[in-house]
Write a protein that binds this DNA or RNA. Structure first.
Length: 269
DNA sequence: AACAATGTTCAGTC
DNA sequence: GGACTGAACATTGT
């Protein structure tokens, strides 16, 4: 489920529960998730240190470590979640507003823990990820990320999103343009702005881009506040037979920017 | 069985 | 080189 709002919640969980605890052991044996590191490389670099800060930009997050240690980069991929437990094994719910995490439910399979940091007090920080597209690495390269979608200013937004000829949705999904917008947040934002996802950005005027910026900010903040992108107004109507919750017209499906896209056949035409 | 899935990356084509 | 598209990646769920 991770788009910017979910990653922000995960970051908050780490910040609330995983900082300043001595790292006693670490499981980095999943060579796919931890590529290009070899097994033990991350462990050797972090044992004895502490995480000192949890930061985020777009869907990427990272932790600074004590004693000038390396940065620990974590990306949740398509299905990753962060679980932090205290010394007694109880999950830390520092993320507050986020509800119902499959990662902490009784039925979770430990085989889906792809990366685990064990603290000296017995608690853990785990990356739980069924689909295994999440990623952990030391000193990640974040240089190609655009500004965070929740922070970008309107002038910067217009300049970046309005450049080029791609469909507007593809532009919103490009992490080097803006960092943090995923498939659902893009659909929600474009629906809120009543914009056709297929519309080329070079046909958008100044005011339309300004309005789109406002819709993105609003949709992103609402998703963080309400606990995830799936709480967007149009999201539950993204299915065959779905109707626009505003005007009742049928929702239409297309592929834009390589992703399944749903939009109102009337208002976003 | 076939296909889609909330993400990123890389090869290939203008 | 830049911009853009589509397939591949690993795995699960429908």
């Amino acid at each position: 489920m991770p788009e910017l709002p979910e990653v922000e919640s995960a970051r908050a969980v780490i910040e609330a529960g995983a900082l300043d605890r001595e790292i006693a052991d670490l499981d980095d044996s999943d060579t796919w998730v931890c590529r290009p590191h070899s097994p033990g490389e991350i462990r050797d670099a972090l044992i004895g240190r502490r995480l000192t800060a949890a930061l985020r930009r777009g869907k990427s997050m990272w932790c600074e470590t004590s004693s000038d240690g390396p940065v620990l980069g974590i990306h949740l991929g398509m299905s990753g979640r962060i679980v932090v437990t205290d010394g007694s094994g109880s999950p830390v719910e520092g993320g507050d507003r986020v509800r119902g995490t499959a990662a902490t439910s009784p039925g979770r399979d430990p085989a889906w823990d792809r990366f685990t940091v064990r603290f000296a007090d017995g608690g853990e920080l785990r990356l739980f990820d069924k689909r295994r597209l999440g990623r952990v690495r030391l000193d990640p390269d974040l240089s190609r990320l655009g500004p965070d979608a929740a922070e970008v200013g309107v002038a910067d937004f217009r300049e970046r999103v309005g450049r080029g000829t791609a469909p507007v949705k593809a532009r919103l999904l490009d992490q080097s343009v803006l960092a943090g917008v995923g498939n659902l947040l893009a659909d929600e934002t474009l629906w809120q702005a009543s914009l056709d996802p297929r519309r080329r950005v070079d046909t958008l005027d100044h005011d339309t881009l300004t309005a789109l910026h406002g819709a993105l900010k609003k949709a992103t903040r609402a998703a963080i506040r309400r606990g995830g992108v799936h709480t967007g107004e149009v999201i539950e109507h993204r299915s065959p037979g779905g109707h626009c919750p505003r005007c009742g017209a049928p929702m239409q499906r297309a592929t834009v920017g390589g992703r399944t896209t749903w939009f109102c056949s009337e208002e976003q035409g």
